[in-house]
């Protein structure tokens, strides 16, 4: 599955595509929700590694494809908060770890390269002539 935590680590790596190549934009996605064990320590350790704006935007893109009633709360503050309360951490947990993109495409915002997701596996391979 492509969870948003993993999506936050994927950038386009096609030849010559070195700026504005992140985050990849979701299109035609199918989402599954899977409950994961809530682990505030992990979230707090991981937060400094996140590209926050990319996460907020991608959560919005994902939530545009499925009714909020099913998806749950995906709203995150525009800036990482300094005080981490339980409600914030629960939302972050849900967004990062429980939303699984099973099918769809990820598109590079710069060169428009398409990376397909099939059965939860993102295909990030490039053809020989596309490798930088």
């Amino acid at each position: 599955m492509v969870r948003l935590i993993t999506h936050n680590l994927l950038a386009c790596h096609a030849k010559g595509c070195t700026s504005n190549n992140f985050p990849l934009q979701f299109q035609n996605v199918q989402i599954e929700l899977k409950e994961a064990e809530f682990n505030p320590t992990f979230l707090e350790t991981f937060m400094p590694k996140l590209e926050w704006k990319a996460l907020v935007d991608s959560a919005k893109e994902a939530s545009a494809t499925i009714s909020r009633y099913i998806l749950g709360n995906t709203s995150l503050p525009l800036e990482q908060p300094e005080m981490l309360d339980e409600e914030f951490l629960k939302n972050l947990h849900h967004v990062l770890l429980e939303i699984h993109v099973e099918e769809g495409i990820m598109i590079c915002p710069n060169c428009k390269h398409n990376y397909p997701i099939s059965n939860g596996i993102p295909n990030m391979l490039l053809a020989e002539h596309e490798i930088g």
Partner: peptide, 20 residues
């Protein structure tokens, strides 16, 4: 939970995983 990615070595992940 294993997040499997189809790629060569760490392509697509490399820039975001530096020193991480």
């Amino acid at each position: 939970t294993l997040d499997a990615i189809q790629t060569s070595f760490t392509q697509a992940l490399h820039s975001r995983l530096k020193n991480s």
